[in-house]
Design a binder for these strands. Structure first.
Lengths: 127, 127
DNA sequence: TCCTTTACGGATAATTTTATCCCTATCGCT
DNA sequence: AGCGATAGGGATAAAATTATCCGTAAAGGA
């Protein structure tokens, strides 16, 4: 997230805040989900989340790495091969992500409609 | 979040994204937590999350309201009295928040240290 | 030699979110 | 009339995040 020095001190008083610190980022939970599902290579991840900007996905991968959520292995082959995996620590996030995934799937329609009501700019739901 | 028209269409493809849409916001999970714990009045909430800017808390309360997470009751007394409560829908978020709270509390120290290593600007943990 | 594939990141712009400041309104009390 | 307590929001600045563009590197193959 911060590739620059941030100015306002962040608060880690609340448990939720701590978790949010790790999970917040437009694609982080998706990235974790991808990796958990065996898509280890950056390429695969980019293809899966094609709405996402590569640069951003890379940044967020970097942060996940620095927060010990994913590990990174570089193979010295060519073309280059890199593999990310969840660390043990990272795996402890899985229950959270899966419950979020579940809640989101159950309520996607409702949230979508409320968002439309608010005239938000939402990409149409795929069929 | 958006009090203006947003330009980049948001994606609700993934369950997690949907959930994030509802939960993302610097203080939203905290606000929900407060309300769940009986702090119904804005005043109480502001006092509890005193690091948070009032204006922002109000904004986020407003969004939670528009997403049917909280309900709002205005009493015509003076001084004014307002009470927020979780809706049934809002209550379905509680398991998510509580698991996040738990994870965060367990790992606060570790995340804190990693953040310091990254030279992030973190408010010192209270004792 | 040029093109492809893979992975990555600098520089910068654009967008979105948060922070700051200060004003409104209402009633009861002094 | 002036003040306190309550809840809220307009206008705008600042900060943080995400998007866009394009360049690097390295080996193999046409």
């Amino acid at each position: 997230m911060q590739s620059y020095e941030n100015k306002i001190p962040q608060d880690l008083e609340y448990g939720v805040t701590v978790t949010m610190k790790v999970l917040a980022g437009k694609w982080k939970p998706c990235i974790i989900d991808c990796i958990a599902n065996g898509m280890k290579r950056p390429n695969q991840i980019h293809k899966k989340i094609k709405q996402a900007n590569k640069r951003v996905v890379n940044q967020q991968l970097g942060e996940l790495y620095e927060y010990d959520i994913v590990s990174k292995k570089v193979y010295q082959e060519y073309p280059l091969k890199v593999e990310y995996e969840l660390t043990d620590f990272g795996r402890t996030l899985l229950p959270i992500i899966s419950i979020m995934e579940e809640w989101g799937n159950e309520n996607a329609q409702k949230i979508y409609e409320l968002a439309i009501q608010r005239k938000e700019n939402i990409a149409p739901l795929e069929v």
